[in-house]
Computed example of a mutant assay.
Amino acid sequence: MIGIATVLAALGGGLLYAGTLTILAAVSVYGRTPSRRRNARATLALLVRSQGRSGSDDEPS
């Protein structure tokens, strides 16, 4: 049986990840300088790409 602490930790991690993506998406659109927007888009792309790979069981580790 999964403990309450495990569930809360998983929810907290998910919320932290979602919050990070939201902030990066906002910076990539509303950043003051083009370089800041470009950096935010690059970081956002890396996070989204790595999240997609971590859920796949097809690739060897």
Rank of each mutant, 00 (worst) to 15 (best):
L47H: 08
I4T: 13
I23D: 01
L47K: 07
A5R: 11
G55H: 03
R38F: 15
A9Q: 00
G3L: 07
V27H: 00
P34H: 06
A18C: 07
T6C: 03
L46E: 08
E59P: 00
V27R: 14
S54F: 00
G52W: 07
L47N: 01
T33K: 12
V7K: 09
A18S: 04
E59D: 07
M1G: 01
R49I: 13
S35M: 10
I2V: 15
L44T: 05
R53W: 15
N39S: 07
L21M: 11
S50E: 15
L15I: 11
Y17D: 09
L21C: 12
D58I: 04
A9H: 02
G12L: 09
T33M: 10
V7I: 13
T43L: 14
G12T: 10
R36K: 07
S28L: 00
R53K: 15
P34W: 08
A26S: 10
R49V: 11
A42I: 15
T43N: 12
N39L: 12
G13N: 06
L16N: 00
L8K: 14
T33H: 03
P60M: 08
A25F: 05
A26K: 14
E59Y: 09
G14F: 11
L15E: 03
V27E: 06
E59V: 15
G13D: 09
T43I: 11
P60V: 12
V27N: 01
T6V: 11
D57R: 13
R32D: 09
G3C: 10
G52S: 03
L11T: 05
V27C: 06
A26E: 06
T22V: 07
L44Y: 06
L15Y: 14
T33A: 11
P60G: 02
A26T: 09
R41A: 13
V27K: 06
L47S: 04
R32I: 02
L21H: 00
L16G: 01
L21Y: 00
R53T: 07
G14V: 00
V7Y: 08
L8P: 02
L47R: 02
T6E: 10
T20V: 07
G55V: 01
N39G: 04
R53F: 14
P34N: 05
S61I: 08
R53E: 10
G14E: 00
L24V: 04
Y17T: 01
V7H: 05
N39C: 04
L11S: 03
Y30W: 08
P60A: 04
L21I: 15
I4F: 12
A42L: 14
T20A: 06
A18Y: 10
A45I: 13
E59A: 15
G52K: 07
S56K: 12
V27D: 05
V29G: 00
R38L: 03
A10N: 01
T20I: 12
L46D: 15
T43K: 06
G19N: 11
I4Y: 01
R36N: 06
L15K: 00
A40S: 11
R32M: 02
I4N: 05
A42K: 12
S28A: 15
E59F: 15
T22C: 02
R36D: 09
S61M: 06
I23W: 08
L47P: 02
G12K: 01
T20Q: 08
D58Y: 04
L16C: 06
E59M: 07
R53A: 15
